[in-house]
Protein backbone atom coordinates (compact mmCIF):
# COMPACT_ATOMS: atom_id res chain seq x y z
CA UNK A 1 0.00 0.00 0.00
CA UNK A 2 2.60 2.54 0.97
CA UNK A 3 4.64 1.62 -2.13
CA UNK A 4 1.61 2.64 -4.17
CA UNK A 5 1.35 5.90 -2.31
CA UNK A 6 5.05 6.54 -2.85
CA UNK A 7 4.71 5.90 -6.58
CA UNK A 8 1.70 8.18 -6.85
CA UNK A 9 3.47 10.95 -4.97
CA UNK A 10 6.61 10.47 -7.03
CA UNK A 11 4.67 10.69 -10.27
CA UNK A 12 2.89 13.83 -9.08
CA UNK A 13 6.12 15.52 -7.98
CA UNK A 14 7.99 14.61 -11.16
CA UNK A 15 5.20 15.64 -13.53
CA UNK A 16 3.90 18.72 -11.78
CA UNK A 17 6.65 20.17 -9.61
CA UNK A 18 10.03 19.11 -10.94
CA UNK A 19 8.45 18.78 -14.41
CA UNK A 20 11.03 16.28 -15.60
CA UNK A 21 9.24 12.91 -15.67
CA UNK A 22 12.40 10.93 -16.46
CA UNK A 23 14.26 12.15 -13.36
CA UNK A 24 15.31 9.24 -11.11
CA UNK A 25 13.73 10.31 -7.83
CA UNK A 26 14.49 7.95 -4.96
CA UNK A 27 12.23 7.39 -1.94
CA UNK A 28 14.75 9.01 0.37
CA UNK A 29 16.02 11.82 -1.82
CA UNK A 30 15.78 15.09 0.00
CA UNK A 31 13.26 17.20 -1.92
CA UNK A 32 13.61 20.65 -0.41
CA UNK A 33 16.98 20.45 1.34
CA UNK A 34 18.22 18.69 -1.79
CA UNK A 35 17.03 21.58 -3.94
CA UNK A 36 14.60 19.55 -6.07
CA UNK A 37 11.68 21.75 -5.12
CA UNK A 38 11.18 24.89 -3.07
CA UNK A 39 9.05 25.20 0.01
CA UNK A 40 6.28 26.87 -2.05
CA UNK A 41 5.69 23.49 -3.65
CA UNK A 42 4.59 21.95 -0.36
CA UNK A 43 1.26 23.69 -0.82
CA UNK A 44 0.86 21.79 -4.10
CA UNK A 45 1.69 18.52 -2.39
CA UNK A 46 -0.89 19.34 0.24
CA UNK A 47 -3.56 19.96 -2.41
CA UNK A 48 -2.62 16.71 -4.17
CA UNK A 49 -3.00 14.73 -0.95
CA UNK A 50 -6.36 16.33 -0.30
CA UNK A 51 -7.61 15.49 -3.79
CA UNK A 52 -6.19 11.99 -3.96
CA UNK A 53 -6.52 10.67 -0.42
CA UNK A 54 -9.55 12.60 0.75
CA UNK A 55 -8.12 14.37 3.78
CA UNK A 56 -6.46 17.72 4.19
CA UNK A 57 -3.05 17.61 5.88
CA UNK A 58 -2.86 20.05 8.76
CA UNK A 59 -1.04 23.22 7.69
CA UNK A 60 1.34 22.96 10.63
CA UNK A 61 2.45 19.51 9.44
CA UNK A 62 3.55 20.82 6.04
CA UNK A 63 7.11 21.61 7.02
CA UNK A 64 10.46 20.76 5.51
CA UNK A 65 11.24 18.67 8.59
CA UNK A 66 8.15 16.50 8.09
CA UNK A 67 7.87 16.37 4.32
CA UNK A 68 11.35 16.35 2.81
CA UNK A 69 11.25 12.95 1.05
CA UNK A 70 8.76 10.86 -0.89
CA UNK A 71 8.91 8.28 1.91
CA UNK A 72 8.18 10.83 4.63
CA UNK A 73 5.19 12.20 2.76
CA UNK A 74 3.87 8.70 1.97
CA UNK A 75 4.24 7.60 5.59
CA UNK A 76 2.36 10.68 6.66
CA UNK A 77 -0.45 9.93 4.22
CA UNK A 78 -0.57 6.28 5.34
CA UNK A 79 -0.78 7.28 8.99
CA UNK A 80 -3.41 9.97 8.56
CA UNK A 81 -5.74 8.90 5.78
Amino acid sequence: MSAEIRDALRAFILNNIIRRPSYKLGDDDSLIKGGLMDSFSLVEVQLFIEETYGFRPDDVDMTVENMDTVRMIADYVQANR
Partner: peptide
Protein backbone atom coordinates in the same frame (compact mmCIF):
# COMPACT_ATOMS: atom_id res chain seq x y z
CA UNK B 1 23.89 17.36 -10.74
CA UNK B 2 22.30 16.23 -7.48
CA UNK B 3 25.19 17.75 -5.55
CA UNK B 4 24.91 21.02 -7.47
CA UNK B 5 21.21 21.29 -6.65
CA UNK B 6 21.75 20.49 -3.02
CA UNK B 7 24.56 22.96 -2.49
CA UNK B 8 22.67 25.78 -4.18
CA UNK B 9 19.63 25.02 -2.01
CA UNK B 10 21.66 25.03 1.17
CA UNK B 11 23.68 28.14 0.43
CA UNK B 12 21.17 30.44 -1.24
CA UNK B 13 17.54 31.45 -0.96
CA UNK B 14 16.59 29.72 -4.19
CA UNK B 15 16.42 26.29 -5.81
CA UNK B 16 17.43 25.32 -9.34
CA UNK B 17 14.67 24.11 -11.64
CA UNK B 18 17.11 22.24 -13.89
Amino acid sequence: ARQVRMRVAQQTEVSLSD
